[in-house]
């Protein structure tokens, strides 16, 4: 029930940001459509713990800032590779261990790897990631485990918040 109400509040805030209307009639229509969506979601039984990330702590925001900086650096590297005339690519495929214990942390780690250009997480099974990298340097960057540790830190805080 609590997650239904928080979903309704989230949907209504989203609706209000998109529409920008303040007339009572239109606000009523918005609230009515949010109620219908929550009812249908309840009937579909898709409202669960992970359906809306209210349990994510705000500690993830510094991680995002760090991730943005990593994305900038990786982008410049990939752009250099693409515009150099000899096309010095050295694609490699390797496996690495994600040291997060729960699936959410592993998914955050895999998504961060995919979001950084030059490395793509191809497979995630039993905590072992299979990664395709455009250059050997990019692969070495993943294998230093810096991102892994940072995700562990964020996720540890999230788990503490969670239980």
């Amino acid at each position: 029930m609590a997650s239904s109400i928080s979903l309704w509040v989230f949907l209504f805030a989203f609706w209000f940001l998109l529409s920008g209307h303040t007339e009572p009639l239109l606000l009523g229509f918005g609230a009515f459509s949010c109620t219908i969506v929550v009812y249908i979601a309840h009937r579909m039984d898709v409202i669960d713990h992970e359906g809306h990330p209210s349990h994510l702590s705000f500690k993830i925001i510094p991680y995002w800032a760090w991730l943005c900086w990593e994305i900038v650096k990786a982008n410049i590297d990939v752009a250099k590779v693409i515009i150099s005339p000899k096309l010095p690519i050295s694609p490699v495929m390797f496996k690495t261990k994600a040291s997060q214990s729960r699936e959410l942390g592993q998914v955050i780690y895999a998504n961060s790897i995919t979001l950084t250009p030059g490395t793509i997480a191809v497979d995630l099974e039993n905590g072992v990631l299979e990664i395709h990298a455009l250059t050997v340097e990019g692969a070495k960057g993943v294998l230093t485990g810096d991102m892994d540790r940072r995700v562990c830190k964020v996720k540890g805080e999230m788990e503490g918040h969670d239980e």
Partner: peptide, 29 residues
Amino acid sequence: CHALVRAAIVDGAKPMLKEGVVLEGEYKD
């Protein structure tokens, strides 16, 4: 991006890889 690459791998596409690269700290299994 992940769905696309995963679909290509499951379909049997073999990625073009550079030969003879040894990476430190790679998970061996």
